[in-house]
Amino acid sequence: MKTLPRHLTPDIWLQQVFTSTEARKGGVVKRKIRDVERLVGRHAFLHEVERRGFQAVENHQHYVVFCNTLPLRRAKP
C-alpha cells in the first residue's frame, strides 16, 4: 500500500472530492471503498455526503455519490 503524502489529510481529501468539477456541477463522483476507508473512514465520508444533502450507493468496490439533491430511481427495463 502506498504511503500518503504528509500534506494529504482526511479534511483536504474530502474537500478535493466535493469541490471537484464534477461534484460542483451536480454530477457523480466514484471512489473505491478501500481508499475511503484508508484515507478518511467510512463514517466520516458518509457523514460528509449526508451533510451536503447528497446520496451515495455502494456497489462491489465503489461508493458512487450523486452530488445533487434529486431523488434516485433504479432503472429497470
Rank of each mutant, 00 (worst) to 15 (best):
E58T: 11
S20C: 10
F54K: 00
Q55R: 10
T69P: 00
L8I: 03
G26N: 10
R6C: 05
V65F: 08
H47A: 14
R73K: 15
K2G: 11
P5K: 15
D11H: 15
R38A: 15
R73D: 01
H7P: 00
N59P: 07
C67W: 03
L46W: 04
H7Y: 12
F45I: 01
P10M: 08
V17T: 03
P77H: 07
P77F: 02
E22P: 00
F45D: 06
E48Y: 00
F45S: 01
R52H: 04
M1T: 02
A75K: 11
V40R: 01
A23M: 09
H60T: 15
E58Q: 14
V40N: 02
A23R: 02
Q16W: 02
R31L: 09
R73A: 09
E48V: 06
T19C: 03
M1E: 11
L70P: 00
Q16L: 13
E37Q: 13
L72R: 11
C67S: 07
V29P: 06
R38L: 15
V64L: 11
G27E: 08
R6Y: 04
N68I: 00
Q61A: 12
Q61I: 10
V64D: 05
K76I: 00
R6F: 12
R24K: 14
A23D: 07
R31I: 03
E58L: 06
G27K: 07
P71E: 04
L46Q: 10
A44T: 15
N68W: 05
F45R: 00
V28T: 12
R52P: 01
R6N: 11
V65Y: 06
P5F: 07
L8K: 02
Q16P: 02
R74V: 13
A56G: 02
L70R: 15
V36I: 14
Q55W: 01
Y63H: 04
D11F: 09
R52W: 08
N59Y: 00
K2M: 06
G53N: 03
L14N: 04
N59D: 14
H62F: 14
D35N: 13
V40C: 09
Q16K: 12
T69E: 04
R52A: 01
G26L: 05
E50T: 12
G41P: 00
F18C: 07
D11P: 08
L14R: 05
T69N: 14
T19G: 00
F45G: 01
E48G: 01
L70G: 02
L4Q: 10
L46P: 02
T69F: 08
H47N: 11
K25I: 03
V65S: 02
L8R: 08
V57S: 10
